[in-house]
Design a protein around this nucleic acid. Structure first.
Ligand SMILES: [Mn+2]
Ligand SMILES: [Mn+2]
Ligand SMILES: [Zn+2]
Ligand SMILES: [Zn+2]
Lengths: 142, 142
DNA sequence: AACTAGAATTAGAATTATTCTAATTAAACT
DNA sequence: AGTTTAATTAGAATAATTCTAATTCTAGTT
């Protein structure tokens, strides 16, 4: 049974937030915060470098564990480009990724609303899509 | 200067075929043939197992080298699913990949013709797309 | 406040796909 | 045939990620 902390006692952690069932530890909190503040889809290594500033002594293994936990509980998303190290994305709305080869930056790309994928792809009637991934490479207008 | 082999001398190799500038060695030929015959997007390991039947003694390093050469010369395509081992695809026409989670098989998915990606994605005016990747996961109708 | 059981963190070892190295072999050209 | 260049090979190296086993923390209970 989870305590509700109604008096706001500063020594009992806040459980009002919904972390999709994930226990939000100090380390996970830091990793999560860094991802929420990030805009460039950082790698585990990138995240580790940031966390280490706010929480010296945190281990790389823990950063990997935290990222796995956050992904598993759908608080962040894991994004892969070819065989490069995985990147992590705090944007939970459905979107694709554009890799700008000029700048090296990765940008979120939203889908036009009303646009259905079935208008675009030849899929057998009755196909169930559980997951969609769209990745683009190119250059943005300068 | 490349000899043209007009007399069909069996000791001089055939240079009439266009391999996109790639010298087609015995090993590359075998790897390429296996990919052309394949229908399931095999991994390097899969390809190695096949090649080894037709050409015992071929090394895994060579299979990797051949695959890299074939990809580099755009005779086959490298396909990645998350962090799984790379797979290779002989289908050069523009298409996406559907990973059927029931069977584990990977199927090619063609785009409806006339459908433009710009109708589907919110991209800034003037964006240059050099490469597009679409990956789906789900189940096909049984 | 101590007690306990489960979960999280940690350092470092292990794993695995892939790439690199250096030696050998094969092909192409003169 | 001789020379040059590229390809193949076995095995070592690499690098991202996962695993292991020990320790520490947390939440719930007495
Ligand atoms: Mn970065
Ligand atoms: Mn296979
Ligand atoms: Zn994103
Ligand atoms: Zn394909």
């Amino acid at each position: 049974m989870v305590k509700q902390n109604p008096e706001g006692n500063p020594h009992t952690p806040d459980k009002t937030q919904d972390w999709n069932g994930l226990r939000m530890t100090k380390q996970r909190r830091v990793v999560y915060d860094i991802l929420l503040e990030s805009t460039d889809h950082p790698t585990a290594q990138d995240v580790f470098l940031q966390t280490t500033k706010r929480m010296p002594g945190i281990s790389l293994a823990t950063v990997y564990n935290c990222l796995e936990a956050l992904v598993g509980h759908e608080l962040v998303r894991q994004v892969n480009f070819d065989r490069e190290p995985s990147r992590y994305c705090p944007n939970l709305s459905e979107h694709g990724h554009f890799h700008d080869v000029k700048t090296g930056r990765i940008h979120d790309v939203t889908f036009k609303d009303g646009a259905k994928l079935t208008d675009f792809l030849n899929l057998p009637e009755g196909t169930e899509i559980s997951d969609l991934e769209i990745t683009l490479r190119g250059t943005l207008p300068s």
